[in-house]
Each structure stands twice: as structure tokens, then as C-alpha cells.
């Protein structure tokens, strides 16, 4: 039963991903991307990663995709992609090549995957159930011990991103003074 649910989910993810690719309307493909992200969150739930699934929803669909939609609306990008993809020769061959890439890799994974779940996975699950320690506690413990360096550096990354986003999106008048009250985005 669980497997059936999983494969339905697999199909949904694939369909949404194709939707991102083939939709010629930007808003629609953004919505399809939200679909992919939600489906991935469910996938994480199946893999017992509740916290990651939760963050996936909050950060990706809640923050990043809203930002995307906001910018699409702000810039009023109604015009769809003009020429259908299959008419562009060079891109067609690029696409064919990357499809070959995918099938080769998929086949290789099929052939090479070491069969069987490692004992670690089963043990792990059993221990999580037994000890009653929520996953969040484990993750946060790791974050401030083993992965403390990336954790600290992330804060600097966010600072850089804030400065960068402000400096690129701010409007200046001719003298280089920033315009604080926007009358319109012409």
C-alpha cells in the first residue's frame, strides 16, 4: 500500500516537473514548481524526515516561490514564451543530449545500486521510535556541534544576500540619492 502511494507521488512529481518545463506561461510554471516542491515534501515525510519536510514547505513554497510570483507580478511578465521549444534546432539537440545523459545515469544507478537497505537505516528508525527523541533535537544538536562552521557562515551569507538584494533593487535618482517613496514602477 505504502509503495502504491509512493508511486502515485512519483508520478505527480514527474508531471509537475514536466509542467515547469513545458508551460509557456511563467505564472503557470511557477505554480507547477510549487507542486513539485510540495510533492517532494511528502516524499521527505515518507522517508521519515518530518522536520526537513516542514522546512521544505515553509522555505520553498512559503518564501522562495512567493518571491518569484511577486517578481513576476511586479514586472508584469504576461508575455508567454514566443517560439515553441521544438522549433529551435540547436536547443533540440542540446535537449536530446541531456535526455541521453539522464537515461544513461538512470540505467547506471539501476545497475550499480548496492541492493538492500543498510542495517543503519532500520536501526536508526527503531532507535528514533524507542528513544522518543524528536528528530529536531538531533538536527539542532548536530547543527551547533559538528556543523557549527557552516551554521555561522550562513549568517554571513544572509547578510551578503541582504546587502546585494538591496543594492540591486534600490532606485536612485540622477545624483545617486536613493528614492525612498516610489510613486510607480514604470
Amino acid at each position: 500500500m505504502a509503495l502504491v502511494i509512493y508511486y502515485v507521488l512519483f508520478g505527480i512529481t514527474v508531471l509537475f516537473a514536466l509542467g515547469v518545463l513545458f508551460n509557456r506561461n511563467t505564472v503557470r510554471s511557477a505554480i507547477c514548481l510549487v507542486g513539485v516542491m510540495a510533492a517532494l515534501a511528502v516524499n521527505y515525510l515518507i522517508m521519515r524526515q518530518e522536520f526537513v519536510a516542514f522546512i521544505q514547505i515553509v522555505v520553498y513554497t512559503g518564501a522562495i516561490m512567493v518571491l518569484f510570483l511577486f517578481v513576476i507580478m511586479l514586472l508584469n511578465l504576461r508575455e508567454p514564451e514566443v517560439m515553441p521549444w521544438y522549433l529551435r534546432k540547436a536547443r533540440f539537440w542540446g535537449g536530446a543530449l541531456s535526455l541521453v545523459f539522464f537515461f544513461t545515469l538512470a540505467l547506471a544507478v539501476q545497475v550499480w545500486t548496492v541492493s538492500g537497505v543498510t542495517p543503519g537505516a532500520i536501526e536508526n528508525e527503531a532507535f528514533i521510535k524507542e528513544s522518543g527523541t524528536p528528530e529536531v533535537i538531533l538536527l539542532s544538536t548536530l547543527m551547533i556541534t559538528k556543523y557549527v562552521a557552516p551554521f555561522i557562515l550562513t549568517s554571513i551569507l544572509l547578510l551578503v544576500a541582504v546587502i546585494g538584494a538591496i543594492v540591486m533593487a534600490k532606485r536612485y535618482d540622477e545624483d545617486g540619492q536613493e528614492i525612498i517613496s516610489e510613486e510607480e514602477v514604470s
Binding site: 543503519g120 536501526e123 536508526n124 532507535f127 528514533i128 528513544s131 527523541t133 538531533l138 544538536t141 548536530l142 556541534t145 559538528k146 557549527v148 555561522i152
Partner: peptide, 17 residues
């Protein structure tokens, strides 16, 4: 030692910024 105890018993040794 299972992975969870591993994490809980993890003692940071060199967090000297």
C-alpha cells in the same frame, strides 16, 4: 553505539573561532 547515541555523545573538540 547507534547513530543517535553517537550524535548525543558528540563532544565538540575544536570550536575555537
Amino acid at each position: 553505539m547507534n547513530p543517535i547515541e553517537n550524535i548525543q555523545a558528540y563532544v565538540p573538540t575544536s570550536i575555537h573561532f
